[in-house]
Write a protein that binds this DNA or RNA. Structure first.
Lengths: 150, 150
DNA sequence: TTCCGATTATTCGTGTACAAACAATCGGCA
DNA sequence: TGCCGATTGTTTGTACACGAATAATCGGAA
């Protein structure tokens, strides 16, 4: 792909961790999470919890699995995230009379208020995450990243 | 930062999860891990386990905490990763006579052989992760990503 | 030398992540 | 109508991820 041919056993020596996409993605996300936790405020929401709340603000009344798909969370993971938010009284869960398998989720009053309060921080968190880049670089980066994310 | 001023309460409505750097980073890494697990082979190494092994191949005889810093892993996380690799006989751990707090790590014969065997897959995993981008885009992306990762 | 701050490894608690297996339910086809 | 494959939510098991606390040790300043 780059300059040198890459299919012989000789390329073993040139695997530099710092240049691998996966390692860089992991470290970048790591840094973002640290920024998030430092700036999200006293609500102490995690990135996933906040993502779930924001989605529910825009799309109330969807089921747990649907919300999971919309936030790229596994059903088992979603279960835990929702459980903690319900325990904190930010989300309400009720059975769907149409389909007894489903649990319909919606923001509680406190949950809605919380989202509105912290969404300003969320914008600042994104800005801080992208701070090392210029304005033009940010646009380029986000466009390429979106394609990598699929 | 961009066109519109961003400090009034009115910007609450325009928080689109899909455009946030953190969400995209998380999904991109998610996709990478899936690729990694599908292509790493029967060794069944995880990304972190592989990173630790590669580092030890290049820098034998370092301590657990040092290795953690070199692979961006928390000391507590490192502890678990190393433990599993020791259990599998891929890493050897011995006390440092110079400093009795430290555990000196090195690859076992099996560990070294395994790294050499799977490092080719690792190159293909990186290529697959970056597949959505052209060659020029990959270089741009990695350069920007490295800066975001700090 | 003694004492104190820093370092090393470990453990605990909480929170993702996801594969796999499960029971309950749904929907549609024979 | 009865049956079967798909969907929903849950649980279990393994593996990160990291803050916080701890015990052992080190190194240098008083």
């Amino acid at each position: 792909m780059t300059a040198s041919e890459d299919d012989t056993p000789e390329r073993r020596k040139d695997y530099v961790l710092e240049e691998q996409a996966g390692h860089l993605l992991r470290r970048a996300y790591q840094r973002h999470v640290a920024i998030f936790q430092g700036m999200i405020g006293e609500s102490q929401l995690t990135p996933l919890q906040f993502a779930a709340l924001v989605r529910l603000r825009d799309l109330s009344g969807i089921s747990q699995n649907q919300l999971g798909r919309l936030t790229a969370m596994d059903a088992a993971t979603m279960q835990g995230v929702i459980k903690r938010l319900v325990d904190r009284g930010l989300i309400e869960r009720q059975a769907d009379p149409e389909d007894r398998r489903r649990l319909i989720l919606s923001l509680s009053k406190a949950g809605r208020a919380l989202v509105e309060n912290v969404i300003g921080n969320a914008h600042r968190i994104t800005a801080e995450t992208l701070k090392p880049l210029s304005s033009a670089e940010r646009r380029t980066f986000l466009k390429l990243l979106a394609r990598i994310a699929e």
